[in-house]
Design a protein around this nucleic acid. Structure first.
Lengths: 344, 344
DNA sequence: TTTTGGCACTCGTGTGTTCAGAGTGCCAAG
DNA sequence: CTTGGCACTCTGAACACACGAGTGCCAAAA
């Protein structure tokens, strides 16, 4: 085959870039004449028309009706994002605003709440932030408290500031000595470890205590493991749904499936879950597995306290979105949230 | 004045009722002819027209344009709700479905989540459920745990299953004896009490410990009081926003302010807060204080584990909603949630 | 006094027509 | 390969027009 992807010369790429930029700006199909007027391409409309024909042939753009301008296709946006666009860095005032906005947060809930609102405001789209998930974070402290002779409260504190507690009904009375011993043994092994690794590190514990205490220890550990494994606890926060009103002109049809998708935590979690661990992920239109979101694009990225990403955040908007700007905002916000988490 | 509210005779009321019912069903202005056809009023269209003129005179209905049918005004809906409508009880299968749907809940979060989804589905509108609020509930247990020499974790467990925890930085080292003493004293006084009453009951505590420990005790208590008072923690859960797409035909204009309002937890909290403690509250259109919701109606009611209402839940929909049905669903769901909470 | 039928009037909606403008594709010349 | 010219297509706005639903009013009937 003479090149499965026919090579597009530079000018054609420039034309595509211009089309994307103009269409994102005006929301209207863009014609050859308007193009040469707004961008100094140094060629005539006729030339641009030829290029457009080629681009359409390759599936990067298409026209709604015969006598209309061109609109980028999903494939066109894809090429734009991959090859033609630079992530737009935030301006200094914007960075200040972000910092200022996030610095006021008092606890983890507040950090997430502020982040999601900020992101929605910055991008003027729908923002989604996943709570720092247990499975990626590490143990800061594990506490055992006797509430009654055979009742123990277990508290798990993670490095992301999350606290989980469980009540444990033990098979027999639990002495304060045993509890203190257990507490010490658990913490010395678990603190600083990633949550999924903890069970493995505590396997040997039952064997280390007196025969009589084993059932108790096993019970406590079982509850702890359960708390550690609790994947259901992956929560998500949403903001900016009002921005959906700026979606398109053909309203209810476009917006309803999106609203429905946004109500399904499961869908959103999977959406964020598919984000690459490193770098930013952009999914465009049909690339999105969930059908209801087929006319949207998702820009998402991981964030975390160290270099490690502990959760994801992102933005959902129309495929016709300002990719460079959105990507810049998403990246910047993720960074700052990471810093905030690291500090606390 | 010869009666500031002119008496409307029975037939006029029947006409109003018919207008409301038809308009809710068809979403289109209803004319005199259509009315006599669908409801057997036993009079001619001309008579109905006279009644309509009277109703319009009194402000219960109005016509969008000269040659159109009539639409109920907020005042008309108000009269309908107050005098003309009976709350529609749930059918047996519906009740079974509600019960079945809510019975699977595993914890408080889950109860609220299921409730709000159920309500949205049942009414096909936007549902709002407030978490059982701290201020109405009572203390089940308060726990103090030493995490470090001068660091104490405070855990507050309420009868509604809610858990709040706080880290306390103490002015000096905290001995285990002091902590145990404090824990016992606090619990003996606070357990079973309503949250707002607790501070008053613990006032005397600092005076009961040794001089040297007073700062510590004061600090711990301050944090506890803060947690108790935390009104911000009044959380809300939302579902059914996709139902907004069935709002009206003049889309973005109607829906945007509503979406914005729904994002403001504060607005929703105030909205629910204004619900009467006993009985169901229906607010219609302009009766709602918040401007963005002026073209909606809110049906809300308190729910709780005992006779006591601990929180509110409700539904937000277009003023043109099926009031009897919505009120029936809201009442039924509130009852069942109350039962579920009482059981757990 | 209330109800009813009749009638003229109003006005929104849907339909068809026209027209201008934007945009294209193609072709032949530069 | 680029460009200007040209014929062609198609949308959307503007306009006219007829239809029909619905009204208000009035005089007669109950």
């Amino acid at each position: 085959m003479a090149g499965e992807v026919r090579q597009l010369d530079d000018r054609k790429l420039a034309v595509l870039r211009a089309i994307v930029q103009d269409y994102v700006g005006t929301e209207e199909p863009v014609g050859s004449k308007a193009l040469v007027e707004r961008h100094n391409l140094g060629v005539s409309p006729a030339t641009v028309r030829n290029d457009m024909a080629a681009l359409e042939e390759e599936g990067y753009i298409h026209q709604p009706h015969t006598s209309a301008g061109r609109i980028p296709t999903d494939k066109g946006y894809r090429l734009f994002v991959d090859k033609l666009a630079e992530i737009k860095p935030m301006t200094a005032p914007e960075r200040r605003a972000i910092r200022h906005f996030l610095d006021g947060a008092v606890d983890l809930d507040d950090v997430v709440a502020r982040t999601v609102r900020l992101l929605a405001q910055l991008t003027r789209q729908v923002a989604v932030v996943q709570y720092p998930s247990l499975s990626r974070s590490t143990v800061r402290h594990i506490e055992l408290v006797a509430l009654a002779p055979a009742k123990v409260m277990l508290v798990l504190i993670t490095n992301t500031g999350r606290v989980e507690q469980r009540l444990v009904d033990c098979p027999g009375t639990v002495g304060e000595t045993l509890l203190a011993d257990l507490r010490a043994r658990i913490n010395v092994r678990a603190v600083g470890q990633r949550l999924p690794d903890v069970p493995g590190l505590l396997e040997e514990l039952p064997a280390m205590v007196e025969q009589a205490d084993r059932p108790t220890v096993t019970t406590v550990l079982a509850t702890l493991f359960e708390a550690l494994a609790e994947q259901n606890e992956e929560r998500i926060m949403l903001a900016g749904t009002a921005n959906l009103t700026r979606f398109g002109h053909d309203f209810p049809l476009t917006i309803q499936p999106v609203l429905e998708a946004l109500e399904e935590q499961v869908v959103l979690l999977r959406l964020l879950g598919e984000t690459a661990d490193a770098g930013m992920t952009v999914r465009i239109g049909r690339e999105i597995a969930y059908e209801g979101l087929n006319s949207t694009s998702v820009v998402s990225v991981g964030y975390g306290s160290g270099d490690e990403s502990v959760a994801k955040l992102g933005v959902i908007g129309p495929t016709r979105m300002d990719y460079p700007g959105t990507m810049g905002a998403v990246r910047a916000v993720a960074r700052y949230v990471g810093q905030i988490l690291a500090e606390s």
